[in-house]
Design a protein around this nucleic acid. Structure first.
Length: 773
DNA sequence: GAGCACTGC
């Protein structure tokens, strides 16, 4: 290897200082630079400050540096900045470390799940909002922070919403009514009162005043938001002051159609060609609602393209959506070949998560596929709905990042005025079980009285409280149970998965359950592109198990493990990584999803080991594992009906097994499922991974299924407990069962024995359950 | 024999 010449070195020095100088200039030219003094002054004067910063103002990178320079990190305290997304936390931290001229992970660092670069001397810490929530579990007063900045608050993720409610309490606790160091006690409520009283008021959320405690210095809060939503935040924080910072965005001309379009896909197609033929150079970004639309528009363009004159055929179509393998996603960043115009067909991923360079034209049909949750049916749905005004603004802004742009909204201007101002916050349309479990763990006992910026419906809260109760996470008084509730709250998983792990420890199949919940926690690991459906099916067939999807998933995981172990002994890590991706590709497995599942597996394994759970394997005894699945997922049980559909026991909802399940044809008598999804308003269903009900039994652990005629009861009788909707629970043994029934009505209950799937009748009456069989 | 936007711990 040639020696490094002195000349080389000083050359690098020069390059380095040239870069520093450039960074200094860039910093100074940001719109925010001129208001540094004023901003710092406002932070000193106000405990809560709302900062409305337009795109390109530099607020995210500059404000933490201003506050650091103004002395907000004295005495080793930290400025924390939260982001809704990992990429943002990582990239912004890298940029700020460079601007400060320090090594990443020292004065400036980031912390996201699976990746923490911070150390004891970190003073400016970028992180995801969910991670700060987790931190609060260990340190309820967030004592090391002097300032917490919640960035992108207008996006209103569940984490952001919960965080703001929590920060409001922490701030109060750290200034006037400081707690006694035992956590934030916000008042206790009795479960029965909570569930039964319809006249709850919101007063109960105020927590007990406690003597002033000198231990904690006051906490400054900064909420950064886009303009439309600033007022809501200000009101929530008692009329907090809002300041506005100019951005640096190029003008975008907005065009509307004269009349409403009946077919927005067709309209998109026409607009694409219109821009291509009539407008100057620049790439086009089209917002569509999903993979299916993207693929069909791509096909339509390619069909029309040959009809164009030779000189106009230079159009490059690039799709992007989250489920697309990373290598294909990367294609959007590559510049189009000379003379070509790039047309990017994207889902919402291009709205905030991915910034694509070179966009001059945006086509916005005005629709989005949105998830919502019906607490009554316990069912999620994905439905195409109109965007909100702020979403439309966000989309059009994508055309003005590098120069003036144009946005074509495929609806009339008067329709825009009718749109909602902002998208409904996620917390209003999701299952709250996880949120509630975390709040309980943070010492918030009265969920109905919690000061949410926007309170979820009472029905949704009650439903989730009930679910947590049935899982054993809450006591009769609606407090976190010990140890189960506390253990569940510690695990970064859906509560039902956490419970499954705890039970698996008793069933001696924790290793199998760890693999299962890791894989259930990620996006599907099976990748089947439409044009290669048959090949994909053949490839995945060798993993599939007649015992259900859960066991099929375990088979894939074990196969990938075997492959990795064998290869990593033969070759280095880098090479292993490469052949691993090849292995995934050959088997039609999404390597990104599998990698993600492996990360989760590793993290959760660490947690359960710390918790002292019994990390054992049931080996090839899958019956034991299926018993454990039945006992864990009893809330998600369904039984076959005469006509071949299924009835979900918890809700009575009629559902069907999704064709992607290995049990789709088999149609076993009883199943447990992983999710219930309704798509596009039809009487659909989707029951993803299923476990076939065990068909051979074991006298010592007689698992059975309970289903009452009027859908009021459900549960799995596993020799330990029966859970019944409407009044809950009791312990029992096979011989003697005492089931408390609050409404005093007679319930006809059917028990499906696992031995031979035969039915045994039970009558449930008041507090007694008598065997009818 | 159908299809699932996007994040996050």
């Amino acid at each position: 290897m040639p020696a490094v010449h002195r000349g080389n070195f000083s050359n690098r020095q020069t390059q380095f200082s040239a870069r520093r100088q450039k960074i200094m200039q860039q910093r100074k030219s940001l719109p925010i630079a001129s208001v540094e003094k004023r901003l710092v002054e406002e932070v000193r004067k106000n405990d809560v400050l709302i900062i409305v910063g337009e795109t390109g103002s530099g607020k995210t990178t500059q404000i933490p540096q201003f506050l650091f320079d103004a002395g907000f990190c004295r005495d080793g305290r930290v400025i924390g900045i939260t982001q809704p997304r990992r990429v943002a936390a990582v990239t912004v931290a890298k940029r700020v470390a460079e601007e400060c001229g320090v090594e990443l992970g020292q004065k400036v660092g980031y912390s996201v799940r699976f990746d923490d670069t911070t150390c004891g001397s970190t003073r400016i810490k970028y992180m995801t909002d969910g991670l700060l929530l987790r931190e609060a579990l260990l340190d309820p007063y967030l004592s090391k922070y002097s300032v917490i900045i919640v960035d992108e608050a207008h996006e209103r993720t569940v984490h952001t919403d919960v965080l703001m409610g929590l920060l409001k309490k922490v701030q109060l606790a750290r200034s006037s009514s400081v707690g006694d160091g035992q956590g934030l006690n916000f008042g206790k409520k009795n479960l029965k009162k909570v569930m039964m009283s319809e006249k709850e008021n919101d007063q109960s959320g105020r927590f007990h005043k406690m003597p002033r405690h000198e231990k904690y210095a006051p906490l400054k809060l900064i909420i950064m938001s886009a303009s439309l939503d600033a007022r809501a935040f200000s009101e929530y924080f008692g009329g907090a002051k809002a300041v506005h910072i100019q951005g640096r965005q190029f003008p975008v001309d907005i065009f509307y159609t004269r009349i409403a379009e009946t077919d927005y896909l067709d309209a998109s197609l026409i607009t694409i060609f219109q821009i291509h033929l009539e407008e100057g150079p620049g790439d086009i970004l089209v917002f569509l609602t999903g993979q299916e639309e993207i693929e069909s528009v791509e096909r339509l363009i390619n069909e029309k393209l040959p009809q164009l004159p030779q000189e106009n055929k230079k159009l490059l179509i690039v799709p992007i959506f989250a489920a697309l393998p990373s290598e294909q996603q990367m294609r959007v960043f590559a510049p189009a070949p000379s003379g070509f115009r790039k047309v990017i067909l994207a889902t919402n991923i291009a709205e905030t998560s991915v910034t694509i360079p070179g966009i001059k034209y945006v086509i916005d049909p005005g629709f989005v596929k949105a998830r919502s949750y019906d607490p009554g049916k316990g069912m999620e749905s994905l439905i195409i709905v109109p965007t909100s005004k702020s979403q439309a603004l966000q989309r059009s802004g994508r055309a003005g990042r590098e120069g003036p742009g144009k946005c074509f909204r495929l609806y009339p201007e008067k329709e825009f005025e009718k749109l909602e101002d902002s998208t409904m916050p996620e917390i209003m349309r999701c299952n709250l079980s996880n949120v509630i479990l975390q709040l309980k763990a943070l010492g918030v006992d009265d969920i109905l009285g919690f000061d949410f910026i926007e309170k979820p419906s009472r029905a949704a809260i009650i439903k989730s409280l009930e679910e947590l109760f049935l899982l054993g996470a809450l006591t009769d008084e609606c407090l976190l149970s010990d140890p189960v509730g506390h253990q569940m709250a510690r695990l970064p998983l859906d509560p039902i998965y956490s419970k499954a792990l705890i039970l698996a420890s008793e069933f001696n199949c924790l290793e199998e359950m760890l693999i299962t919940v890791a894989l259930l926690s990620v996006e599907s690991i099976f990748y089947s592109p439409r044009d290669k459906l048959e090949e994909a099916r053949t490839a995945t067939k060798c993993f599939s198990s007649p015992e259900g999807d859960h066991i099929t998933l375990i088979n894939v995981y074990r196969a990938s493990n075997d492959f990795l172990e064998k290869r990593s002994m033969e070759m280095g890590i880098a090479k292993t990584e490469k052949v691993f991706r090849k292995w995934c590709k050959d088997n039609y497995i999404n390597s990104r999803s599998l990698r993600h599942a492996r990360d989760i597996h590793k993290q959760i394994k660490g947690h359960v080991e710390q918790m002292g759970l019994n990390l054992s394997s049931c080996g090839d005894d899958m019956l034991q594992f299926r018993r454990c699945l039945a006992a864990s997922f009893f809330l998600n049980a369904a039984v076959k009906q005469p006509e071949g559909t299924y009835r979900a026991l918890a809700s009575g909802q009629v559902v069907q097994i999704h064709p992607s399940s290995v049990l789709f044809r088999k149609k076993p008598e009883c199943v447990i499922f992983n999710e219930l999804v309704q798509t596009n308003n039809k009487i659909k269903f989707v029951v993803v991974p299923l476990n076939r009900w065990p068909d051979t039994g074991n006298d010592n652990a007689p698992n059975a299924m309970l289903a009452s005629e009027n859908n009021n009861g459900w549960g799995v009788y596993d020799g330990f407990s029966i859970a019944l909707r409407n009044k809950l629970e009791t312990s029992c043994s096979p011989e003697k069962m005492n089931v408390a029934v609050g409404d005093g009505r007679r319930h006809q209950v059917t028990v499906f024995s696992l031995d031979n799937e035969k039915e045994i009748g039970w009558t449930l009456e008041n507090d007694n359950m008598a065997n009818n069989a």
